[in-house]
Amino acid sequence: MAHDMEVVNPRAGLFRVILTAYGVLIYLFLFTPIAVMVLLSFNKSKVVGFPMTGFTLDWYSSLTQNMIIQDALGKSLAVGVSVTVLATVIGTAAAFPLVRAHIKYRSAVRVFITLPIMIPGLLIGVAILVLSTNILHLQPSLPIAVIGQTVLATPFVILVVSSRLESLDRNFERAAADLGAGPVQRFSFVVLPLVYPGIVAAALMAFTLSLDEFVVTNFIIGSDQTLPIYIYSQLKFGITPEVNALASLMLLGTITLVVVTTLGLRLIKMLTAKSRQEEKTGVPA
Rank of each mutant, 00 (worst) to 15 (best):
D4P: 01
D4W: 12
D4K: 15
V8M: 15
N9Q: 15
P10F: 10
A12K: 15
R16A: 08
I18P: 06
T20S: 00
T20G: 00
A21L: 11
L25C: 14
L25P: 07
L25D: 06
I26P: 08
L28G: 15
F29V: 05
L30M: 15
A35Q: 10
V38D: 09
L39P: 01
L40C: 14
S41D: 07
G49M: 10
M52F: 11
W59M: 05
W59S: 10
Y60W: 07
S61W: 13
N66Q: 11
N66P: 10
I68E: 15
L73E: 01
K75E: 02
K75V: 09
A78R: 14
T84K: 03
L86T: 11
A87V: 11
T88M: 09
V89H: 10
A93R: 12
A94K: 03
P97G: 04
L98P: 03
I103H: 00
K104V: 02
K104A: 08
A108L: 13
A108I: 04
A108R: 02
V111L: 13
I113P: 01
L115C: 11
P116Y: 08
M118L: 15
I119C: 06
P120L: 05
P120I: 09
L122H: 02
L129H: 03
V130E: 04
V130F: 10
S132W: 04
I135T: 09
L136I: 01
H137V: 03
S141E: 00
P143E: 07
I144A: 01
V151T: 13
A153K: 05
A153P: 00
P155G: 03
F156G: 00
V157F: 01
V160L: 09
S162V: 03
D169R: 05
N171V: 11
F172K: 04
F172S: 06
E173H: 02
A176D: 08
A177Y: 02
L179W: 06
P183C: 04
Q185D: 14
V190W: 03
V190G: 04
V190F: 02
L194R: 03
L194C: 06
Y196K: 04
P197N: 05
G198F: 05
A202T: 01
L204H: 00
M205Q: 11
F207S: 02
L209Y: 00
V216E: 01
V216F: 09
T217V: 07
N218P: 03
N218V: 06
S223D: 10
L227G: 05
L227M: 14
I229L: 14
I229M: 12
Y230E: 05
L235N: 13
L235K: 06
G238K: 15
T240K: 15
A245E: 07
L246A: 09
L246K: 09
S248E: 00
L249F: 08
L252P: 08
G253E: 08
T254P: 02
T256L: 14
V260A: 13
T261Q: 12
T262F: 12
M270H: 12
L271R: 14
L271H: 04
L271G: 09
T272R: 08
T272Q: 13
S275Y: 02
R276Q: 15
E279R: 13
T281W: 01
G282T: 04
P284S: 11
